[in-house]
Design a protein around this nucleic acid. Structure first.
Lengths: 334, 334
DNA sequence: TTGAAAGCGCTAACAG
DNA sequence: CTGTTAGCGCTTTCAA
């Protein structure tokens, strides 16, 4: 900036004014400055700007996995809101590891991001307290903060969505519905499990723990659980799966377990979360919209960044049942 | 840092030494400093550190769309490499818009990122020159830089992959193979088109422009093109699709165009890019590995950041044919 | 082993 | 409309 000022024959501050489009610079002067800027290839150093102004115009996003379609949809939505506000976004994947989540968040804070959107991997967010005191804003998305203070949170209607999906199966005559989902340590899985039980209760059906299988959505584990369920003395006639990864793993398991001579899968199926090609496969799902989740969280964050001091909010986004066949009759897997 | 120094009864510089784990501080002094740090909730301001040191330990990644599975896989791989090096990563989606790519890249440079991984939307990268002169490193991934200087680039074997896929269809008896792909303005689409023609030539088959349809992978446009191809006087007996979005759009088009009473699709199909559930749908694909692309690009970038001054490199990653049924006979769409 | 001083590049506050 | 000065929080350099 000094060099530009010298080249244009003005003071440093005038260059600053031109660079920041501040009013009150004579057009001719401004032109001279701009010419010098171009000639010298000058670009403002935002690190210095940041240091001086105290605001970085950047936010940090911590998700579970940037490669997971659900979170990448959310990520894109947050990015779009950030860019619309002229903010840049750091991204980090926690891989469902609370320590990594913490490291990422603290690294973002050391970079003095103005705000954070966090899909929490851990339940304990004490570590955030000093940062919040220092002025960062944080919004939780997809899952609530486990402890610490009351913070803005955007969730979907996990229990209601699961209840609707299971009720749909029951309405189609199923009286034994299996539940395959993520580990109970994960908030959304527990909520959906609760919705599953609610649906049973409301229909006057008994809750049978043998029909429930919760754990990581890894193919091997899901295959083992689906196998166990189908070999029960009284096997389920339908399955409700707790998220898209589990649904996909269940589809693979069903294919592995089904005699190719049969055209139909041995059970009906409804899954939580929509996924690409679910339409072509004819899978009925309870859909939530990752982009809407991200947008809502980012909007909330930016309202905080522009001074909104209301008490912490907890928004719950609706889910939608999308009927495609797999939950209404049997469906083909081959 | 000043406050911590005062609280610990030492000079600012001693706090700096402790914070950065520099040697030459008496353990007792260091303990006193650490106690003060904890008491005051002090966290180093990385913006100031950055300003002074000239390095930010951050990189910028510009992709086409964070929500696209291909680019989100690439993104996650770059992120992992960055984190392993102790770097943080800004992400931005260009939406295939050269202006937005440029804005993102320049915004990252203003933040003084040390390096960039760019999936170029535009062909002109003149705007990068001043930044490169100023010392940023840049690596291009998935597509080459259109112009300007010679820069590190990581691609996959687009032409070879397409040639293999088309040759596979020809080997299965198809003599009229349709080609549906992205617009010719997109590097990968042009390369794959070239591979398609190569395969025809090598098999002694004529090139028929009527069998080629290139354009944005939007459902409506793909449906129109598939319709046109299938209604040709001499329709293709097989289709080769140029990327996963196009493949999926083609599948939807085929379903829309096929009488549900028929069990089989009217054509055979091989697609460029693997995608989730392609296995369950039985789609034969030419697979490239987005994570490997990202990893290779990031590795190259970090080798530059640690001083590698060799001439620019162009790496080409192999592709793999994955046979699943749709390219070998007819396949079921329902 | 510890500290003092200078300055990274910028903007806020205040003069002229 | 333009300029001067101070200082953001840190690291580098040099000295004790």
């Amino acid at each position: 900036m000094n060099d530009v000022a010298a080249a244009a024959g003005v003071a440093l501050k005038t260059v600053s004014r031109v660079v920041n489009a501040e009013p009150g610079v004579h057009p001719a002067t401004a032109d001279r400055v701009r010419a010098a800027i171009d000639r010298l290839g000058y670009r403002r150093n935002d690190s210095a700007r940041t240091l001086r102004r105290g605001r970085t115009a950047s936010i940090g996003l911590v998700i579970e996995d940037a490669a997971d379609p659900f979170y990448s949809g959310l990520s894109r939505a947050v990015e779009d809101v950030a860019l619309r506000h002229g903010f840049l976004m750091f991204t980090g994947s926690s891989s469902e590891d609370p320590a990594r989540e913490r490291e990422l968040v603290l690294a973002f804070c050391a970079r003095r991001v103005d705000g954070l959107v966090i899909v929490p991997a851990g339940a304990d967010h004490q570590y955030l307290s000093p940062e919040l005191d220092a002025g960062v804003s944080a919004v939780f998305a997809d899952r609530p903060s486990g402890s610490g203070r009351d913070l803005d949170t955007v969730l979907c209607d996990n229990a209601g969505g699961a209840r609707t999906g299971v009720a749909h199966l029951i309405a189609h005559g199923h009286r034994r519905v299996g539940f395959i989902a993520d580990a109970p340590s994960i908030f959304t899985a527990t909520q959906r499990w609760y919705g599953y039980r609610q649906a049973l209760t409301r229909a006057g059906l008994p809750y049978d723990p043998a029909l429930v299988a919760m754990g990581p959505p890894e193919p091997a584990r899901v295959l083992a659980d689906v196998t166990r369920l189908l070999r029960l003395a009284e096997p389920p006639t339908a399955l409700f799966t707790g998220n898209s990864r589990t649904t996909v793993a269940t589809l693979r398991a069903l294919r592995a377990l089904t005699d190719p001579a049969e055209l139909a899968a041995p059970v009906a199926l409804v899954g939580f979360d929509d996924f690409e090609l679910a339409d072509l496969l004819g899978i009925t799902v309870v859909s939530q919209h990752p982009a809407e989740l991200g947008r809502a969280a980012a909007d909330l964050l930016f309202s905080r960044l522009s001074g909104n001091k209301e008490p912490a909010q907890r928004r719950e986004l609706p889910t939608h049942l999308i009927v495609r066949g797999s939950g209404e009759g049997t469906f083909r897997l081959f």
